[in-house]
């Protein structure tokens, strides 16, 4: 049997090269657009930074979409499904490797932004930007920002991270749930006009899944509304709790479907 760690590393590798390709394309776009700025004569020391902000956010979405696609393909391909590992381990390795690669991409973006900010600071910039950059690099800006926050800000921050990661994972598990349900149901429908049937099926399943999720969220808020205080923190934690519960439910449903019903594409 293949271990979770081995499977994780194997799946990670493919996604790693995908992410690097996206980053290379982003670099190319930045170079081309910066050269254009140079030609038109609007080039400043901050051009690279601005360029990375705009192209980077596009690239991030591209990475997110392509990883989602790769996720779903992996579930359906014998190349990966024939590896001797339990369905839970396989599912976890696939989703976790996507998450790690998206985080890796985000970190690379952040590093690039900091570097281009440093470059920007060395050039001639207007006084507002100058003050901002100074505050960013000598820590005074951070201090000012944090002093305005409540005392328990590390916990708030943690809650927000959980919510952000949870939402990200929830989007993936929901896509998978819809994909699995549609694929399973379409196997039971008569052949012919597959495309039309599939489109209708997708619409029905998406509607159904979103209805169920909103129902669960309603139930949750109904039972928890009693102890929601005015504190921001408790609201964040409650949101995190809701996301985690939904996540667990969807993951269990997905693994069950994977084990019992979801077939791979034929060879």
């Amino acid at each position: 049997m293949t271990s979770f760690g081995t499977m994780f590393r194997a799946l990670n590798r493919n996604k790693f090269s995908l992410i690097n390709q996206i980053f290379l394309v982003e670099l190319l776009a930045v170079v081309v657009s910066s050269l254009w700025t140079l030609v038109t004569g609007h080039f400043s020391s901050m051009t690279l930074f601005y360029s990375f902000i705009s192209w980077g956010s596009i690239a991030w979405w591209v990475a997110f979409i392509l990883l989602s696609r790769k996720n779903e393909q992996t579930f359906m391909q014998d190349t990966y499904r024939l590896v001797p590992i339990g369905d839970g381990g396989f599912y976890g390795a696939n989703v976790l490797s996507s998450l790690v690669e998206l985080l890796y991409f985000s970190v690379v973006q952040a590093v690039v932004l900091v570097i281009t900010m440093l470059i920007g600071g060395m050039g001639n910039v207007d006084s507002d930007m100058h003050a901002f950059l100074n505050g960013f690099f000598d820590g005074s800006g951070w201090h000012a920002a944090l002093s305005g926050m409540p005392a328990n800000w590390p916990w708030l921050f943690l809650g927000m991270v959980i919510v952000a990661l949870g939402i990200l994972l929830l989007v993936w598990t929901t896509i998978t749930l819809i994909h699995f349900l549609t694929s399973v149901i379409s196997n039971f429908l008569p052949r012919g006009r597959q495309r039309v049937v599939l489109v209708i099926l997708y619409i029905v399943v998406i509607w159904l899944v979103t209805r169920i999720i909103s129902l669960l969220v309603m139930l949750y808020t109904k039972y928890t509304s009693g102890f929601v205080g005015a504190h921001v923190a408790s609201q964040i934690y409650l949101a995190a709790g809701a996301i985690v519960i939904l996540l667990v439910l969807e993951v269990v449903a997905n693994i069950f479907l994977l084990k019992k019903w979801v077939e791979t594409q034929a060879n």
Binding site: M1, N14, Q73, T74, Q77, D78, T79, Y80, L82, V83, P84, I85, G86, D87, Q265, N267
Partner: peptide, 15 residues
């Protein structure tokens, strides 16, 4: 999952 560890299938490298 156990069965798979005994089987080598000529998969077409679709992945």
């Amino acid at each position: 999952a156990n069965r798979k560890s005994h089987i080598s299938f000529s998969e077409q490298l679709h992945g």
